[in-house]
Simulated scan of single mutants.
Amino acid sequence: MTRALGAAVRRWARAVRWYLRELTGESEYDRYRERQLHRHPLAPVPTRREYEVLRARHREAHPQGRCC
Rank of each mutant, 00 (worst) to 15 (best):
M1I: 09
M1W: 12
M1E: 06
T2W: 12
R3Q: 13
A4E: 12
A4M: 07
G6V: 03
A8P: 00
A8G: 06
V9M: 05
R10C: 07
R10Y: 08
R11I: 02
W12V: 02
A13M: 05
R14M: 05
A15D: 06
V16T: 06
V16K: 00
V16I: 08
V16Y: 00
R17Y: 01
W18D: 00
W18E: 03
W18R: 01
Y19R: 08
R21C: 02
R21E: 02
E22I: 05
E22V: 03
T24C: 04
T24H: 04
T24D: 01
G25E: 07
G25D: 06
E26S: 09
E26M: 05
S27R: 15
S27W: 11
E28W: 04
Y29N: 02
Y29L: 03
R33L: 06
R33T: 04
E34I: 03
E34L: 10
R35A: 09
Q36K: 15
L37R: 15
L37P: 04
H38L: 12
H40N: 12
H40G: 00
H40I: 01
H40D: 04
L42D: 12
L42I: 06
A43Y: 05
P44M: 06
P44R: 14
V45E: 01
V45D: 04
P46T: 04
T47M: 13
T47F: 11
R48I: 03
R49S: 09
R49A: 09
R49N: 08
E50G: 10
E50W: 05
E50V: 06
Y51A: 01
E52K: 10
E52M: 08
E52R: 14
V53K: 15
L54E: 12
L54S: 10
R55D: 07
R55M: 10
R55L: 14
A56V: 10
H58Q: 13
H58N: 11
E60A: 14
E60L: 13
A61Y: 06
A61Q: 14
A61L: 15
P63F: 09
P63H: 12
Q64I: 08
R66M: 10
C67R: 15
C68N: 14
C68Q: 15
